[in-house]
């Protein structure tokens, strides 16, 4: 049962940050067409001015007026999915707090695999990355 580590089962059975938030800054839906899974992600963002990092080359995800960094403050999510996609969304919702666009892009599929315990069946990568793909869209549409 290499893909069903205790940590996955734990997040699947007790998903963190599951639900809806009152005033989200950004909402986004993502789905896996072939398997019917879908997820709705809401985030609150904040501009961080301490420890200012370099602006993203595209200028997106960064509010330059204060020279600050737009980072994710909080994430809530809802959806229908399998154990892998649910656990990945739950874990990500904790992991991404404080990340800006660049951090999120850098995290990548490798970060997802590592987060899930270092091993994901190739056929399940779409499940594992469902929430992550949704999050990337959040910054792309900013």
């Amino acid at each position: 049962m290499s893909d069903y580590k205790d940590i996955i089962i734990d997040h699947y059975k007790n998903p963190r940050n599951f639900g809806e938030m009152d005033r989200a800054d950004i909402s986004m839906d993502e789905s896996n067409a072939s398997c019917g899974d879908m997820i709705q992600i809401q985030v609150k963002t904040e501009t961080r001015t301490d420890g200012v990092r370099l602006p993203h080359p595209d200028g997106i995800g960064v509010r330059n007026d204060e020279g600050g960094d737009l980072v994710i403050k909080e994430m809530k999510w809802r959806g229908v999915g399998c154990a892998i996609s649910t656990a990945a969304a739950s874990m990500l919702s904790e992991k991404i707090v404080g990340m800006n666009r660049e951090d999120l892009e850098k995290f990548g599929e490798a970060g997802i695999v590592e987060m899930l315990g270092g091993e994901v069946n190739v056929g399940r990568m779409k499940c594992a990355t469902l929430a992550y793909r949704g999050l990337l869209k959040i910054f792309n549409n900013e």
Partner: peptide, 12 residues
């Protein structure tokens, strides 16, 4: 149990 999880456990 989600069908993907069921199918993967059966694959094992």
């Amino acid at each position: 149990v989600h069908p993907h999880d069921a199918a993967q456990i059966l694959d094992n």
